[in-house]
């Protein structure tokens, strides 16, 4: 969560929501949240687990690349 907040702080393009999974069970079910932390990227892709800064950001950006065509 901390890293997602830091990413939002750094870039105006980033929004970061922390979501308490047990309070929003329908949303958690929609995104197949069985283990936490689970980070959903633009409502589609996901990254599982707590990763170090570089790995976490790379994992997120890799999921974005196909959409940008880069």
């Amino acid at each position: 969560m901390r890293l997602a907040y830091q990413f939002a702080m750094e870039s105006d393009k980033v929004r970061a929501d922390g979501i308490e999974a047990t309070e929003f069970p329908e949303l958690a079910e929609r995104y197949n949240v069985f283990a936490v932390p689970r980070t959903i990227i633009n409502g589609e892709a996901f990254v599982e687990g707590a990763l170090p800064e570089d790995f976490f950001l790379d994992a997120i950006l890799q999921k974005l690349r196909p959409r940008t065509g880069n």
Binding site: A4, A16, A21, T39, I41, N42
Partner: peptide, 13 residues
């Protein structure tokens, strides 16, 4: 970053 990025981080207490 050239597109909006929305992160939803699911956690539990």
């Amino acid at each position: 970053l050239d597109q909006p990025l929305h992160l939803q981080v699911f956690t539990t207490p």
